[in-house]
Structures are given as structure tokens and as C-alpha cells.
Simulated scan of single mutants.
Amino acid sequence: MSNIPAQLAEIREDFHAVPDAEKLTLLLEFSDELPEVPEQYADVEFEQVIECQSPVFITTEVVDDRVKMFAKAPPEAPTTRGFASILVQGLSGLTTQEVLDIPADFPFDLGITKQVSPLRLRGMVGMLGRVKRQVQEHLSHTTAAAS
């Protein structure tokens, strides 16, 4: 799969490197690694990803053409938290163009289609789509402000 930045490709390779029986365990490890949202984002409105079966909320920030993603997902939704964590870790720090170039179906390339239902994977696709849309909106506002 082309257009995958190194840090996201490394996560994908981690999933491909473990036996099928351990893929869900790896996803749960990512769930435990979802960073807490910094206090300065307490008043920021997060967007709910309605494609997810569990409540997950995301927001992005772009500073100097670098994307930061933040996500909130409840501990009782470990699969959703794992997907959010993969994206937070895999997208944060990338340029806006690197994020926009990631294929929409990237979540299906993690090699976990036997362990996780297509419906849940579509939730992650929804998260990625929201991030890309938020980044594009930022770029549109920046371009409009510069005009």
C-alpha cells in the first residue's frame, strides 16, 4: 500500500508481524496507549464519529503544516479506543498532505479482518475520514484567510 507514512506503516507492520491469535491483543495494547487529551482542549468541541458503534470523539489541530489528532473514547470500548490510538499515534506529527494522501481504506490493510468485524473497521475508516476532512477544512480556512 503506497502513500503510507513511516510511522503508520510501522504500526501496520506490527500487526502483520504477529500471529492472528495475537492481533486482538495488540489492538488492546493500543487501546491502553490512547493518550489523554491535554487540558487546553477541555473547551474544544470534539466531533463525534457516528460510524463507530461506541462513542468516540475526535479533533485535529494543524500548526506549521503538522497535524495533531486528539481522541476521546471510553475504556469500556477497547476496540474503538485501539483504533483511535492507532490513528492518534500514526497521524500526529504528519504534514497535512501526508494525512490527506493516506488511502481511505487503510484500516482494512492492518490485517485484522478476521479478528474485527467489517462494521468496526468501517468505524475506523470513519475516524480517518473525519481527520482528513478536518485537515482539509483547516487548509481551506488558511487559504481563504490568506486571500
Rank of each mutant, 00 (worst) to 15 (best):
F15P: 00
F15W: 02
A17V: 07
A21I: 09
K23D: 04
L24R: 08
L24S: 07
T25N: 08
T25Y: 09
L26G: 04
L26E: 04
S31P: 13
S31D: 05
D32W: 14
L34E: 01
V37D: 06
P38D: 11
P38F: 12
P38Y: 13
P38W: 12
Q40G: 07
A42H: 06
D43C: 09
F46D: 02
F46N: 03
E47H: 11
E47V: 11
E47I: 12
I50V: 09
E51H: 13
E51N: 12
Q53V: 10
P55Y: 06
T59D: 08
T60D: 04
E61Y: 05
E61M: 14
V62W: 01
V62Y: 01
V62Q: 00
D64W: 05
D64C: 08
D65M: 05
D65Q: 01
R66H: 15
R66S: 09
M69D: 00
M69T: 13
F70P: 00
A71G: 08
A73V: 03
P74Y: 08
E76S: 09
A77P: 10
P78E: 00
T79C: 08
T80C: 12
R81L: 10
F83C: 09
F83L: 05
A84W: 02
A84C: 05
S85M: 05
S85Y: 05
I86V: 10
L87H: 01
L87D: 00
Q89L: 14
Q89G: 13
G90W: 08
L91V: 15
L91E: 08
S92H: 12
G93E: 05
T96Y: 06
T96I: 09
E98C: 09
E98L: 14
V99A: 05
L100T: 09
L100F: 10
D105K: 04
D105S: 07
F106K: 01
P107W: 03
D109N: 06
D109C: 06
G111L: 06
G111C: 04
I112N: 02
K114H: 11
Q115C: 04
L121G: 12
L121T: 14
R122H: 15
R122D: 15
G123I: 15
M124C: 15
V125N: 01
G126E: 03
L128Q: 01
G129Q: 03
